[in-house]
Every structure is written in C-alpha cells, then in structure tokens.
Design a protein around this nucleic acid. Structure first.
Length: 272
DNA sequence: GCGCAGGTAATCT
DNA sequence: AGATTACCTGCG
C-alpha cells in the first residue's frame, strides 16, 4: 500500500481522458489499471479542494520505481495552469473542469497500435478491441488480466486473427506496421531523438498512421507534450471558440497539456 | 433498422 | 493541394 496526497492529480479524470484505454473505474472510487506487465488497483480516499488522496495497492518501492514516472507525478502542472491566458474564457472554464489530468508516460508500441485501432471507433469499441487483442496475444498477468502484446507477440497474429479482434480494415494496418517494425527493430526508439515534427513525420510513414494518430502517439507514447492532436472534438472547439486562430505560441512547449484540458472539457461538458 | 464513431488511404478535381 | 469517398464493426 502506498498513500499519496497530491495536487493536480485526479485518477477518475485521467482514466476518462481518452489518452488511455486500459484504465477503468471498476467500482465506485476503485480503479484498475494495466500498464506493461503490471496490474495496479487504486482506491480513491478523498477528493479535496486542493489535494486529492489515493491509495495505490503496490509497495512504495514499486510506486517509486515505476508508477511515479508513469503518472508524471514530479511535473509541476501549476506552472502550466498559471500560464493560461486569464482573459481566455474557454480555457479558464476548461481548466476548472479538467484540472487534475496529467499526461501519462505510456508505452510507445502500445500507443501506436492503440491509436491505429482508434480510428472511426467509439471509446467503448476501442477498449473492447484492445482487450481482445491483449487476451489473445498478450502475456497473462494474473487470471483474466492480460498485458498489451509486445511487437514479438503481436507479430505472430495473422490477418484473420486480427480481424477476429473486431479490427475490421485496421487489421491490415496493424499487420503491415508490425511487419515493418520487425524488419526495423530499433525504429520506434531511434525516432525518439528526432524533433517533434520529424518524429510525427516518421510515424506517418507507417501504414494506417496519419497526422492525428501520429500526434497522439507522440504525445502519449513519447511524452512530447508540445504535440497537439486535432480530433473531431478539438476541431469543434477550435471552430467554435478560436475561429480566428488558436494561440499555439503562447503554449509553446506544453500545448499537449492544454489540448488535454480542452478535449476533456469540450467532450464532457461543453456539448454541442 | 440505421447512422455514425477521437481517421486514413486512395482517388478524384 | 484540397475535396471526396470507401472502409470494418459495434454501439446508440
């Protein structure tokens, strides 16, 4: 057990923020998360004005070794929030609603495949496809819980196997991407040294990866927090509130954090 | 029953 | 370059 009292950290919002598909509230205030070959349960103890308290069902060592970095605990999100334009009404609303979201440091390969799957799918459908894929090709962590498959594991899948995981036309995208990565085993690591722009361009070379999927992979798999993925929700926000242009320069270096606040608020609160 | 969902690639103007 | 369209499947 490891208890944490912390600001700008809200598990429920993070689980529902669209950056992760393997994080669920399985009972009220009780969460299940699968990352790499780790399974973690988290209990919400209290949600406060400033700080929230959580109990992580793991040792302090495991938390410090892995989860602290994974949850981006040591980044000062107040710094980002203070930089937001006080006169920007939409962003101020978004912040008060979405405060608590952090950018998780997830696995590159998992993010790439997950966001290839995500196209033209609703979140429940994405989650269900990833679950099937993991159960079929990933390692068993404990009974009924499976890790996301590694490249080696997923490469064993035939097009038929993949289609059976409700992937539809995305099956060939995943097959070809796995094939390319097997032939170029250091590709995903090598491109991490590139500039954000070159990283996204490199990812776009993969079959089934366009600008949106590449940006999501960069933001959530490479922690390139300046990436600003534009999906239908963000596009709606941009059209409605920033028809004269969004001030990207102002948020240079952390636009992805702002994007997450905008997305969460736009999708969950600012409907229509 | 049927339109559409956190897009991409191919094929047009 | 920019606009249009097919694409699998599951959920509402």
């Amino acid at each position: 057990m490891y208890r944490l009292e912390i600001t700008n950290f809200d598990i429920k919002k993070i689980a529902d923020s669209g950056q992760i598909f393997r994080f669920d509230e399985i009972k009220d205030g009780y969460f299940e998360l699968i990352a790499k070959d780790k399974l973690l349960y988290i209990k919400e103890i209290s949600i406060g004005e400033a700080k929230n308290i959580y109990e992580f069902e793991c040792s302090k060592e495991e938390f410090v070794d892995f989860w602290e970095n994974y949850f981006d605990i040591n980044t000062d999100y107040d710094y980002f929030i203070e930089k937001i334009d006080k006169n920007d009404e939409f962003l101020q609303n978004a912040i008060s609603y979405a405060k608590g979201i952090r950018i998780l440091k997830q696995d590159k390969f998992e993010m790439l495949i997950s966001f290839i799957i995500s196209q033209r799918k609703s979140i429940p459908a994405i989650k269900s496809a990833i679950k099937k894929l993991s159960e079929r090709f990933g390692k068993c962590i404990v009974k009924d819980k499976y890790a996301f498959p590694t490249l080696e594991e997923l490469s064993k899948a035939s097009i038929k196997d993949l289609e059976e995981c409700s992937l539809g036309y995305r099956a060939s995208y995943i097959l070809e991407t796995c094939k390319y990565l097997t032939e170029n085993p250091t590709f995903l690591d090598d491109i991490s040294n590139l500039s954000d722009k070159e990283l996204v361009a490199s990812l776009c070379k993969l079959k089934g990866v366009g600008i949106k999927v590449a940006n999501c992979t960069a933001l959530f798999g490479y922690y390139k927090i300046d990436s600003f993925p534009i999906d239908v929700w963000i596009q709606k926000v941009l059209d409605k509130y920033y028809s004269k242009g969004f001030p990207y320069e102002r948020y240079d270096g952390f636009a992805g954090v702002i994007q997450q606040y905008m997305f969460y608020y736009g999708r969950n609160a600012d409907k229509k």
